[in-house]
Amino acid sequence: MDDLKRPTLDSDFTCDMAFNKITKWAQKNSLWLLAYGTGCGAIELSPTMTSRYDWSRLGIRGSATPRQADLLLITGYLSTKTLKRVIRSYEQMQDPKYVIGFGSCTINGGMYYDSYNTIKQLDLYIPVDVYINGCMPRPEAVLSGLAYLKDKIGDKKADGWIKYKQNFEWYRENQKKILKSFNGDNMPDKYNW
């Protein structure tokens, strides 16, 4: 983690428009999420979106494709097989984009800490803006995580997507360590392939 560059908002990635007041407000209050139901955590999304908790009142709604999504939810453990899909989906999303790691598995492997086939630490592979811990996190925790992300966007701190771009080689290297046949699986070497 040490050789990771901290994101800088200069050069290509600075923008006066993306973080001015209106757009900041809009980005904060309109989060379309791509719920990647990788693990058991996805079960918690249904109560979060239905009548009891109703995340749509926070401006959150699901979207079917990564092209329109702002937020990628990694709900639980990732196997090496699903990691490929996650990377692919993440890279198809359009900037600015955010990732929420959901449950303990994304932080340290959780109960799969010694599994040979599971990703232990998600932010080695894609940048994570917010972690929601717990196994499982309850809808309340999910909502508070989302609220935290909104604040973070408001404070211009949700900059994982810049980090990913600026440290792209580093992320790719990590990804390639796990995914042995990276190009054999037709994984792209470039960003926005």
Binding site: A18, T23, S30, Q94, P96
Partner: peptide
């Protein structure tokens, strides 16, 4: 507005 302010 959000969609319009996307970066890519």
């Amino acid at each position: 507005i959000k969609l319009y302010s996307k970066r890519t």
